[in-house]
Amino acid sequence: MLRSCCFRCFGRRNGDGLLWHMDLKPHASGDFSIAVVQANSSLEDQSQVFTSPSATYVGVYDGHGGPEASRFVNRHLFPYLHKFSKEQGGLSPDVIKKAFNATEEDFTRLVKRSMPVKPQIASVGSCCLVGAISDGELYVANLGDSRAVLGRRGFDGEKSLVAERLSTDHNVSCENVRKEVEALHPDDSHIVVYCRGVWRIKGIIQVSRSIGDVYLKKPEFHRDPVFQQYGNFVPMKRPVLTAEPSIVTRKLIPQDLFLIFASDGLWEHLSDEAAVQIVSKYPRAGIAKRLVAAALQEAAKKREVRYKDIKKIERGIRRHFHDDITVVVIYLDHHKSSSKPNHKQGTAGCITPPVDIFSYNSDEAVENSGDKIFPNEESRSRVAY
C-alpha cells in the first residue's frame, strides 16, 4: 500500500530557520531535489515525491485559508492514485481524475463532519499540482496556480534551451480564465470583480479550481447558519469553483532535461525562463534551494530590504514579504530510464517535507503533528529558536 511506504525525511537546514531542503535523491530516471520555505504562521504548502523502480510521482499542494486542505491532500491523493492505477492496469488521465474526485469527496465529508466545531474549514482549500512519470510517459495534472515547467533543448529554429509550461494557471488574473468563468455564469454579472488590486471570483478568491473551498461549491454549506456566523453569505446560483483538473500527457524525449514543480510563491518572483536558466547553470545538488533563494532575493528587492534580513523575519510576519514556497526539481536522465534500475534506485519510498518547518526542532515529533488535520497550535507556540 502506497500510504505505508511514505516517510518523513529530514533535510538540511542552515541560515534560515524557516527553510527545509533536500539536496539530491535518486529516482527511476534521474535525480530530484526539494526545498520548502515557510512564511505563514502554519505552513500551507505541502508536498511529496514518491519513487519506485517503475514510476515517479510529484505532488505540490498550495493551501489557502489554512493548512487543513493541503495536509489532507498530502495524505490521501497518492494512495488513491495507487489504488485506481492498480485497478485499471496503469496510470491514465481517467485514473488521475478519479483520484482527484475521490480526494475532493473525502475532504467534503470531513468538512461536513467538522462544521459544528470548526465552521471555517468550509472556506479552506488547496491548489493541487501532480506530476507522474511512468513507462516514459509524463502526466501533469493541476488545479489552481501552482505550475510545472519543462526545461528542454530547443528544436530547429528555437533557442538552445527552452522553458515550456506544462500546466494551466487557473487564476482569474489570466484573461482567458476570466472569460472561462464568465462563460459558465452568463447570468451573474458579478462573478468576477476587480478588488484589492487583483481580479477575484465573487471578490473572494483568485483561483477557479481547487480541492476544498466547499462553501463556494456547495450551496448547503454557505447557507448553513453555523458557517454564516463565521463568514459572509455569498449569493450564487451554482458552484463558482470546480475540482476538475487540467491534465497534460507527453511522451518524454531525449531533449527533455528537467522538470520544475512549484507553488505560486516561486512564480510570483521568477519567470519560467529565469527558473529554467538557473537550473541549467548550477550543479544539481541543492538546486531546489537555489531556486527558493533566487525568489527570496527578488522578494527582498521588491520590498527594498536585504535578503539576509528577510531570513531573520519570523513566520506570520514574513508572509508580508513572500508566500510559502515549495520547489521540486526532477532531472530526466534518459539513459537511466532505459536501463535496469540499480539497487539504490530500486527502493520505493515517499519523501515528505515536515508538515510545518517551524516545528522541525519541536519537542513534539513532526510525524505526530502531521497526522492531525487540526494541529495543536498552542503546543507549537512554545517552540523558539
Rank of each mutant, 00 (worst) to 15 (best):
129 L>Y: 00
353 P>H: 04
105 E>W: 00
219 P>W: 02
330 I>L: 15
91 L>Q: 04
351 I>Q: 02
87 E>M: 14
331 Y>C: 06
90 G>N: 04
131 G>E: 01
337 S>G: 13
383 V>I: 12
324 D>K: 01
176 N>Q: 14
23 D>M: 05
34 I>K: 04
269 H>A: 09
261 F>E: 01
230 Y>G: 05
150 L>V: 11
33 S>R: 00
188 D>N: 10
64 H>V: 06
318 R>C: 12
54 S>M: 10
240 V>A: 13
247 I>F: 07
142 N>P: 04
18 L>S: 12
14 N>C: 10
309 D>C: 04
223 R>W: 05
33 S>D: 00
56 T>S: 15
348 A>P: 03
31 D>M: 10
307 Y>E: 15
282 Y>M: 15
272 D>C: 11
190 H>Q: 13
187 D>R: 09
297 Q>K: 12
49 V>G: 03
124 V>P: 02
165 R>G: 13
8 R>Q: 09
82 H>D: 15
218 K>W: 09
144 G>H: 01
350 C>E: 04
183 A>C: 08
348 A>H: 01
131 G>V: 04
58 V>N: 02
103 T>N: 04
38 Q>A: 12
322 H>V: 06
176 N>K: 15
327 V>C: 06
213 D>H: 07
157 G>W: 07
254 P>I: 01
253 I>N: 15
303 R>Q: 12
235 P>Q: 07
135 D>H: 11
205 I>K: 07
208 S>I: 06
353 P>D: 07
194 Y>K: 10
51 T>G: 06
143 L>A: 06
178 R>T: 10
370 G>A: 15
125 G>Q: 02
218 K>Q: 12
16 D>H: 08
270 L>F: 05
82 H>A: 12
24 L>S: 11
203 G>F: 00
256 D>S: 02
57 Y>V: 15
336 K>H: 13
54 S>W: 05
15 G>R: 05
263 S>D: 02
323 D>G: 01
360 Y>N: 07
28 A>G: 08
88 Q>L: 14
259 L>T: 00
343 H>Y: 13
51 T>I: 13
269 H>M: 11
269 H>R: 05
110 L>R: 01
47 S>D: 10
36 V>K: 04
33 S>W: 00
146 S>A: 11
199 W>Y: 11
122 A>K: 01
201 I>G: 02
153 R>E: 15
188 D>L: 10
28 A>R: 14
371 D>T: 09
296 L>D: 09
21 H>L: 09
149 V>L: 02
331 Y>T: 14
19 L>S: 08
141 A>D: 03
211 I>K: 05
152 R>S: 06
67 P>S: 13
140 V>S: 03
173 S>R: 15
120 Q>R: 14
163 A>P: 04
369 S>N: 11
332 L>A: 03
216 L>E: 07
323 D>E: 07
230 Y>R: 14
231 G>W: 09
213 D>E: 12
259 L>E: 00
187 D>A: 10
65 G>A: 04
307 Y>G: 12
44 E>F: 05
